[in-house]
Simulated assay, not measured.
Amino acid sequence: MNGQRYTSGAWHVSPGQADDFIARWTEFTTWAHSEAPGARMFLLLRAADAPDEFVSYGAWDSDESVAAWKAQPEFGRYFTRCRELCDEFSGVDYTLASSVNLMVTS
């Protein structure tokens, strides 16, 4: 749906920390999915040719649900645990402009 809210992060993980980062990010987003109203889904993508480079996406109901999530004290704790394993991080919030068949398969 156009206007859907997304959060995104570009994570450059320190060498040798990728497995720990994946585990921490999974804990973070598992908590968010169950405790942050408006959280719809989360994805963590790893660069095929750069195993320490990741991009994350989260889908949300609204701007208010994202703001409420980020305001929770647990957000800071979980985010810090992920960030401390990284050399660089940048985050951006988006709204959906267009989509074609967003079906995800395993």
Rank of each mutant, 00 (worst) to 15 (best):
A97R: 10
D49Q: 14
A23T: 13
I22A: 01
D49W: 00
S98T: 08
F79C: 04
G76V: 07
P37H: 13
S98K: 06
T7A: 09
A10Q: 03
A97G: 07
H12V: 06
S62E: 10
I22G: 00
S56Y: 01
A50T: 05
Y94W: 15
R77W: 08
V104E: 02
R81H: 05
Y57G: 00
T95Q: 13
Y57E: 01
S62A: 13
D49S: 14
A36D: 05
A97L: 13
C82Y: 00
Q4W: 09
Q17E: 14
T7L: 08
E35S: 15
V92W: 12
T105F: 04
M41H: 12
F75R: 05
D20L: 13
K70A: 14
E88F: 15
L96K: 07
S98F: 07
G38E: 04
T30S: 15
Y94L: 09
S65P: 04
P51S: 11
F42H: 11
W25K: 04
F54R: 00
P37N: 07
L45D: 03
A48Y: 06
R24G: 01
S34G: 07
A36M: 10
A39S: 15
Y6D: 01
R24E: 07
L85Y: 11
R81V: 04
F54Q: 02
V55Q: 12
E27N: 12
S99T: 10
R81D: 11
R46P: 01
H12Y: 09
P73R: 06
M1A: 11
A68K: 10
G3V: 05
W60G: 00
V104Q: 03
E84W: 07
E84G: 05
V92L: 12
Y78T: 04
F54T: 00
D20A: 15
C86A: 08
L44V: 03
W69E: 06
A39D: 01
G58M: 12
Q17A: 08
W60Y: 13
A71C: 11
D87I: 06
V13M: 03
C86Y: 01
Q17L: 09
E53N: 11
Q4V: 14
T29M: 14
P51Y: 10
T29D: 03
W60Q: 02
S56R: 03
D19H: 09
G3S: 06
M1Y: 11
N2C: 09
V100E: 01
A47V: 11
N101T: 07
R77S: 08
W69N: 12
L96G: 02
W31V: 02
L43F: 12
L44H: 02
D61I: 12
S98D: 07
V55C: 10
Q4T: 13
